[in-house]
Simulated assay, not measured.
Amino acid sequence: MSPRARVRWNGQAVARRAQQGAASGARLGAEHLLNVSRDRVPIEEGTLERSGTVTVDEANTAAAVSYDTPYAVRQHEDMTLRHDAGRTAKYLEDPLNEEQATIQEIIAAQVRRQLRA
């Protein structure tokens, strides 16, 4: 007589945990990006830096980092503006490109964490 094995598949629970981990990772990754970009935001009074925020759409597993002042886009896009040392235009785009691997690892770590629990 051959040995028997019983397999119990919890696909929905696994998918739900993976989605929760991805949403948590997206939030943490976006917060990481916000912190890195805050070090480069042009500063005069600090209003632009303080306007930075993270928004998460857990249902679609998406996160966004934004700065909300009337001049945020111009400060980001106008490469002719002069800034203090270490402060630059592209203060969000450049850190996103540079930190992409780190953000992906943050998300992956949160998914792994949820799947182990």
Rank of each mutant, 00 (worst) to 15 (best):
R112F: 00
A117G: 14
E99S: 12
M1W: 03
I107Y: 05
L115W: 04
V65K: 06
A117R: 15
T102C: 04
L96M: 12
A85R: 12
P3R: 15
T102Q: 15
A63E: 02
A30Y: 13
Q20K: 08
P95A: 01
R38T: 07
I103K: 11
E105F: 06
V56E: 08
S24A: 01
A101H: 13
Q75C: 06
A64H: 04
S66E: 11
A108L: 10
A23D: 00
R4H: 13
H83N: 13
G46V: 02
S37D: 10
R17N: 12
R112H: 10
S2R: 05
L115T: 06
V41R: 07
I107W: 02
E93D: 12
G21V: 04
D84G: 08
R8W: 01
H83I: 05
R6K: 14
G25W: 06
R74S: 08
A72V: 05
A26G: 09
A117F: 01
G52K: 04
A108S: 14
S51C: 03
V56P: 12
G46T: 03
G52H: 02
P95G: 02
R17G: 08
P95D: 00
P3M: 11
T88H: 13
E44P: 00
G25M: 03
E93T: 11
A18D: 07
R17F: 01
V41Q: 09
T88D: 10
M1F: 10
T80F: 06
M1E: 03
N97L: 13
I103E: 09
T47G: 10
V73W: 09
P3F: 12
V65F: 11
S51K: 05
E98G: 12
P42I: 04
D94T: 09
P95T: 10
T102W: 09
L81M: 15
R16V: 00
M1I: 04
E105D: 13
R50T: 04
R116V: 03
A101C: 03
V36W: 02
R50M: 07
P70E: 04
